[in-house]
C-alpha cells in the first residue's frame, strides 16, 4: 500500500458518496447516466468476485464491499426510487460500443478464462436459447481471432505470445459448446441441454 493508492481509493469513495448524496438530497438523478452506474456495478461485481475466493486484507475487503454496496444503491436510486427523474433519452450512449472492445481486451489481457455462462451450461446442463447465441458469437469471435493471428504471423510477421496462448486456450473452451450449439440449437429444439 502506498500514499498514491490510498488517496486514490479514498477519492474514489468520496466520488461515489458525492454522487449518492447528490441524488438523495436533490431527489433527482437528472443529468446522471444510469447506464454508466450500471456498468460500474457490473465492473465491481465481476472484478470483486474474489471477495469469496481469497482474503487479502481488512482494508481490501471493506473497500470492495463499500464499493459494491454503493454502486448498487446508486443504481437502485436511479432506476427505482427516482425513476421518474431519470431521462433515459439523454443517456443514449451505446453500451455495446463500449462492451465489445472491452470484452475483446479482456480476452487478450487476462490470466484465466472461465466465463460463468459456460460454467452454467456445464453446471445446469442447459442454457436458454439467447444465451447460446450470445456464447456462439463470443466463441466465433475467439475462433476468428485465431485466423487473425495466423494472418498476422504470415503477413506481418507479428506474434504476441500472451494473446495467442490465452486466445487458443479460450477457444478450446468453446469447442464442446460449438458442437452442442450446432447439433442441438441450430438443428434441434432451439434450446441447449446437455445429453
Amino acid at each position: 500500500m502506498n500514499i498514491f493508492r490510498l488517496s486514490g481509493d479514498l477519492c474514489h469513495l468520496v466520488a461515489i458518496i458525492i454522487l449518492f448524496l447528490k441524488i438523495w438530497k436533490s431527489k433527482s438523478c437528472a443529468g446522471i447516466s444510469g447506464k454508466s452506474q450500471v456498468l460500474f456495478a457490473v465492473v465491481f461485481t465481476t472484478r470483486y468476485l474474489d471477495l469469496f475466493t481469497s482474503f487479502i486484507s481488512i482494508y481490501n475487503t471493506v473497500m470492495k464491499v463499500v464499493y459494491l454496496a454503493s454502486a448498487y444503491a446508486t443504481v437502485s436510486l436511479i432506476y427505482l426510487r427516482f425513476r421518474s427523474t431519470f431521462d433515459s433519452e439523454s443517456d443514449s450512449f451505446r453500451v455495446e460500443f463500449l462492451l465489445v472492445p472491452v470484452a475483446g481486451l479482456s480476452f487478450l489481457e487476462n490470466y484465466a478464462f472461465t466465463p460463468l455462462e459456460l460454467f452454467m451450461i456445464t453446471k445446469t446442463g442447459e442454457a436458454a436459447s439467447i444465451t447460446t447465441h450470445y456464447l456462439f458469437f463470443l466463441g466465433l469471435y475467439r475462433a476468428l481471432y485465431l485466423g487473425n493471428w495466423l494472418w498476422r504471423y504470415h503477413v506481418e510477421e507479428f506474434f504476441d505470445q500472451i494473446a495467442v496462448v490465452s486466445g487458443v486456450v479460450q477457444t478450446i473452451f468453446y469447442c464442446d459448446f460449438f458442437y452442442l450449439y450446432f447439433t442441438r440449437v441450430i438443428r434441434g429444439s432451439g434450446k441447449m441441454s446437455l445429453p
Partner: peptide, 10 residues
C-alpha cells in the same frame, strides 16, 4: 504465476 496478493488493487 498469477499471485492474488500482488493483484490486490481495488
Amino acid at each position: 504465476e498469477y499471485n492474488v496478493y500482488n493483484h490486490d488493487e481495488l
